[in-house]
């Protein structure tokens, strides 16, 4: 990948990686750090990475950095955003998206990562497995549990709407 292609990946994926990192961490500054770190690593390795593999590399780096951050110091995460430890009553929200964002915060790190990769980016199970270092079966299990949790979290349709 040459410099021109690298800059193209910035244009194409910086927003997506940022949204992914923001949803993973819930913290704007941490998400920005993750984006910068992901692209810095991409640049360091740009000679060895083909242009069509850059997207996976970026999300893989962002995923790993997020997991590292959570494991090293969970206090870094700004829990005020949507990491409330106590489940919030669905009745307080009129917007499903807002409820879902709160629900995402209740998932564990890996579940959150795989379901975001699946829904935000439309990655296949195998691609998610490659990005996260899990196997395909594990990915399916995590997604299944995440969806079950999300459904339970938001309660019934009547409560949401």
């Amino acid at each position: 990948m040459n410099t021109k292609e690298y800059n193209k990946t910035v244009e194409q994926f910086a927003d997506k990686v940022y949204r992914f990192a923001l949803s993973l961490t819930g913290n704007k500054h941490v998400a920005e750090d993750i984006v910068q770190d992901s692209f810095e690593r991409l640049w360091i390795n740009h000679g060895d990475i083909a242009f069509d593999k850059a997207r996976s590399f970026l999300f893989s780096t962002a995923h790993n950095r997020s997991i590292d951050i959570f494991r090293k110091d969970k206090r870094m995460v700004d829990t005020d955003n949507f990491r409330a430890e106590v489940s919030i009553s669905v009745d307080q929200y009129s917007d499903l998206k807002e409820v879902l964002h709160n629900a995402i915060g209740q998932l564990n790190d890996v579940q959150r990562s795989v379901v975001l990769l699946r829904d935000y980016e439309g990655y296949s199970y195998q691609e998610i497995a490659d990005i996260t270092g899990l196997n395909e079966t594990q990915v399916k299990v995590y997604i299944f549990r995440a969806r079950q949790f999300l459904k339970q979290y938001i309660g019934t349709m009547q409560n949401v709407l």
Partner: peptide, 15 residues
């Protein structure tokens, strides 16, 4: 409800 639980990224969020 399961379908509504499917996540979507907010395109207004930019880097």
């Amino acid at each position: 409800m399961y379908h509504r639980c499917k996540l979507s990224a907010d395109s207004n969020i930019k880097y």
